[in-house]
């Protein structure tokens, strides 16, 4: 069994948020994390999946000492986040804010040198490290230019280089490929795998299921502040092995979805996306071959138009839908609130 490098014990975080209506405001308690217990092993790529507002960023902010949890605690690289904040910070490299967090008036090299100094990396080691990163991420062409002249993808790569400047054993990457074009994102994922092979532990959040399946050794699905599933991507997908998934597209009203859920054998029916009057629906059921005629009959009988039907392999998103009844595209911030 590998060593545990990040350990969370009953980690909880509650925010007070204000709902404003004109000049009036009403306080609400928002429970962003609810007693999270997780162990991340040394040398693994650990994926944290969940929709917007599920608590991913709050969890990362607690682990990286940006936030103090309301209760519970955690250890990173053996150091407690509440009592040894500086040692935790020296043990981690972070890319949390995408292309933000850089000085736009400074060049790429000046930015890396600045943050290297803040991480107490000695000057000769800093210079060497910047050259290494320049080669690794092919930054050479634009390292001497002001960041304000960079494209969005170049800023993301520089932010990634910033996270690597202290060559820390643990890396926290929060949606690192979100504004990258496809080739750059592919390149970054390859570098993440290479870094992991060199021995770095990587804590990776994403809402891109394929990215998580491709990269992560283990995955936790987080929803409404709690971990609802944990395992390897294969284990999670196998948990739905007795179930099948059908994707349907067309003009589908909400009442049709309700009626589908009432068909015996249908485990869940969830709208995955809606665009320009067209809806994509995921139906999870026991036996698609047997139930498909009944599903189509119910839809057409209730006024829906179906123009595309596709049974497909179980994905991590299907696991999420099966466990929560919602798609990952749904923002859960509102439903996570609790009246204060």
């Amino acid at each position: 069994m590998p060593d545990v490098i990040i350990k969370m014990e009953e980690l909880s975080k509650t925010f007070i948020s204000k709902d404003r209506k004109g000049l009036r405001s009403k306080k609400r308690e928002v429970q962003a994390l609810k007693g999270v217990n997780l162990e991340i092993y040394d040398g693994e790529i650990f994926g944290l999946l969940g929709p917007n507002g599920a608590g991913k960023t709050t969890l990362i902010k607690c682990l990286t000492t940006l936030l103090i949890p309301t209760s519970g605690t955690a250890w990173v690289n053996g150091y407690n986040i509440l009592t040894h904040e500086n040692m935790v910070r020296a043990s981690i490299g972070c890319m949390l804010m995408g292309e933000r967090g850089l000085y736009w008036k400074l060049t790429g090299r000046e930015n890396l040198d600045y943050f290297g100094a803040l991480y107490h990396v000695p000057k000769p080691a800093r210079r060497k490290r910047i050259e290494e990163l320049s080669t690794l991420l092919s930054l050479g062409d634009y390292l001497e230019r002001s960041v304000e002249t960079y494209s969005s993808g170049q800023k993301m790569l520089l932010a990634f280089a910033k996270a690597l400047i202290n060559d820390a054993p643990v890396l926290f990457l929060d949606e690192p490929t979100v504004t990258m074009d496809v080739p750059t994102a592919r390149k970054l994922r390859k570098i993440v795998r290479d870094l992991n092979e060199e021995g770095h532990t990587i804590f990776y959040t994403t809402h891109l299921m394929l990215e998580a399946e491709e990269l992560c050794h283990r995955v936790a699905i987080i929803d409404r502040g709690g971990v609802i599933e944990l395992g390897t991507p294969q284990e999670l997908k196998s948990s739905l092995v007795t179930e099948e998934v059908i994707t349907l597209e067309g003009v589908i009203q909400e009442n049709v979805v309700q009626n589908l859920r009432e068909i015996p054998g249908v485990k869940s029916a969830t709208i995955k996306s809606e665009s320009k009057g067209r809806t994509t629906l995921a139906v999870i059921c026991d036996d698609s071959r047997q139930l498909l005629p009944r599903i189509i009959e119910t839809m057409v009988g209730n006024g829906a138009t179906v123009d595309f039907i596709k049974p497909h392999e179980v994905t991590l998103e299907d696991v999420f839908i099966a466990r929560t009844g919602r798609s990952l595209g749904v923002d859960t911030r509102v439903v996570a609130q609790k009246e204060g």
Binding site: K105, L106, Y114, A117, Y119, H120, V121, P122, S146, D167
Partner: peptide
Amino acid sequence: MGLSVFSHRSSLGVILTVLKARFLIISRYR
């Protein structure tokens, strides 16, 4: 712990680097 080496010298390095960065930034607002 990565490349971090904590010492009085590195702490002084933080102060000087922040100071230098400020001057670099203001020098770009002529």
